[in-house]
Nucleic acid binder design. Structure first.
Lengths: 152, 152
DNA sequence: GTACATTAAATGTATGTACATATATTTGCG
DNA sequence: CGCAAATATATGTACATACATTTAATGTAC
């Protein structure tokens, strides 16, 4: 993608305020990064949400995780973990079985195949090649401070 | 939402780098803002993409816009403008008719009802109440600079 | 211990995204 | 002119999101 200011990108000449501009810029940039990452994911046959679930499961491994725990740790908490696990199960990247002690809950466990896939994908982590590395380390830290403040 | 650093929000204790942290922070914050805005939109009966299309149409008014122009100006260029226009047409917020001079193209025009809805929604613009205003004007400008650099 | 509330997960429905394909129209080249 | 390439829009399919509802199991109050 060519270097462009947000004004040029969306062909809106004037923003009402620096705030509105920052807001739109943030949403736009996030979409840009997500598309970028989705493209890098394609060769591996899983989507970003599926990848996020797998990473949580790897963090738990060899312990299983319940669906509730997955929802709790997901970036987007309102999404539907059950159906994402469906897809992962179909690809044999996780197993799912009813937990004996509380039969309402389900133990989700990453398989060896799932762990191996994550190993192959580890190089993608950290936003390498996504544009975030256009920043200096100091600028990245500055960005983190600003974003944390927005969510305060 | 309570004030939290990104580490606490997603319960991941250690990031590999300031870059990875910034990447995840950006995606997470953008999702947070979008959910926030979606909630503000709900009383008006339209979604964020539908709102974005309407704003572009207001910018063109009283000239019509083709679907191609909508796609070109949309924040997410790969999404499906045709079907979003379907929804807006069903709500009588836009009209659609074949353009006589080039019958491949379609003239999409915002209706009076659509303009009136946007007027009611104008207060929502600028990210007011979305957390972006937790920043000072100077910080917002700083954020804009950083984001533009990411997309360079 | 039965009845009611709570919790965990799955399912239903509408919307949007991503990408491939289809259909109609216009353009352009021989 | 006639036909292939390009263009504009629409449609099909798979996946994800958002939110409401359902189903089953557990906990709790009486």
């Amino acid at each position: 993608m060519l270097p462009m200011k947000i004004e040029d990108e969306i062909k809106q000449s004037a923003f009402k305020s620096e705030y509105q501009k920052a807001y739109i810029n943030l949403v736009y940039t996030s979409g840009y990064l997500q598309q970028n990452q989705a493209a890098m994911f394609k060769p591996f046959g899983i989507t970003l949400p599926q990848y996020n679930i797998l990473r949580i499961l790897r963090g738990q491994h060899p312990k299983p995780a319940t669906v509730s725990l997955l929802i709790e740790r997901m970036l987007d908490k309102t999404s539907n973990a059950s159906r994402i696990v469906d897809k992962l199960e179909a690809k044999e990247l996780v197993t799912r079985k009813q937990c004996p002690s509380d039969r309402r809950t389900v133990d989700v466990l990453i398989t060896d195949k799932g762990l191996e896939l994550l190993r192959q994908m580890d190089d993608l982590e950290g936003g390498k090649g996504t544009g975030i590395t256009n920043l200096t380390e100091e600028e990245a830290a500055q960005l983190n401070t600003l974003l944390d403040k927005i969510r305060d």
